[in-house]
Simulated assay, not measured.
Amino acid sequence: MHIDLSGKRAIVTGSTAGIGFAIARELAESGAEVTVTGRTQARVDAAIESIKQAATNARVSGVAADLGTAEGCQALIDARPDTDILVNNVGIFGPQDFFEIDDATWQTFFDVNVMSAVRLSRHYARGMKQRDWGRIQFISSESALNIPSEMVHYGMTKSAMQSLSRGLAKVLSGTHVTVNAILPGPTRSEGVLDMLRQAAEKQGISQEALEARFVQENRPSSIIQRLATPEEVAHMCVYAASEQASATTGAALRVEGGIVDTMA
């Protein structure tokens, strides 16, 4: 199968590193004109340069904005009024005892992980509907189904993203605009590797040993028995953005290595 996204415009939020960066790079390699977003201009510029090095003919630009705020989302919309592909990837995570999560933290997680996707999808879906073609993706997580006890606030936001995805797919029923949720499992992204590195240092073991232990102790149902790579998640996203995926909508597309112990 050859996926050609030439002539399509894509926005990937939170795409200066990790899964978002991998998605932006692979969309660009498939011919899409890609907008990278991040909170600082320096990180946006670095991501753009890295993508251009990987794909010589890549058409990629960027917008620096804090998408966890209404003002930041509006800044992106003002800079890029329309798009054909929207990947709602921006998100934050971090383990915290449930009894120590204060109201402000709950609100921050909801604003960044959920409201950014609500605001951007609400805007860009209108244009997609008018043109009768578009692709909207919500990067959720297997934590939306297996709510982690150490990150209840994070799991809640990822469940909300799945609800958004399924509901918006129904709103756009009968059009050629598809809406899907992508569910990665633990992935070797910059943030996850940093978290594991700090834990490994505290325990006095290698990061590789901690990665293996993390899967065995925290995700024992994993079939692949390892962390996925950002590129493996990006492959699913590029397919879901393609013309070939025209009948795939309202779905929760799992890239979590079989952690969720159900065939549904």
Rank of each mutant, 00 (worst) to 15 (best):
Q96Y: 01
A54Y: 02
M236H: 11
G14F: 14
A22E: 03
A245Y: 04
G14Y: 12
T40F: 02
I182S: 02
L5H: 07
G94I: 05
A17F: 06
T35F: 13
R126M: 11
S50M: 12
M161N: 12
Q53V: 06
A22T: 05
G62A: 04
K8H: 10
A10Y: 01
S116F: 06
V34Q: 07
G72W: 09
I92N: 08
A199W: 05
V118W: 08
R43G: 11
G72T: 07
M236G: 12
L145S: 08
A181D: 05
A199I: 05
G20W: 12
A144Y: 09
Q225C: 06
I101S: 01
T187R: 03
E150S: 13
N89E: 05
L164K: 06
I139P: 01
V87W: 02
A199N: 09
R226P: 13
T108P: 00
S163D: 04
G31W: 03
S246N: 10
L227P: 04
V179G: 03
R197P: 00
G62H: 02
D111H: 13
S61P: 00
H2T: 13
S246Q: 09
P230Q: 04
N113H: 07
R135C: 02
E211V: 15
I223L: 15
E100A: 10
A10C: 09
D194W: 07
S140D: 11
A70W: 01
V112C: 10
V179W: 06
A75Y: 00
A247Q: 09
Q96F: 00
E256G: 12
P148M: 04
I23N: 05
R213T: 13
Q96E: 14
D194R: 15
G31K: 03
A144V: 10
S143L: 00
I11Y: 07
Y124V: 11
A28K: 02
E231T: 10
A247M: 14
L145G: 00
A251M: 12
F138E: 08
G18L: 09
I223M: 14
E243V: 00
A117D: 09
Q198A: 15
S242L: 03
M128R: 11
G14M: 12
T35Q: 03
G155C: 09
S30I: 04
I101K: 01
K202F: 07
N180L: 03
E71Q: 14
H2F: 12
D261M: 11
M263C: 02
R166H: 11
H123E: 10
S173G: 02
W133A: 10
N113C: 06
A28C: 06
D66K: 04
T249R: 03
K202A: 15
K129T: 05
V118A: 05
V112L: 09
L172M: 01
A28G: 01
D261C: 02
M1K: 04
R59I: 10
A241T: 05
I101T: 14
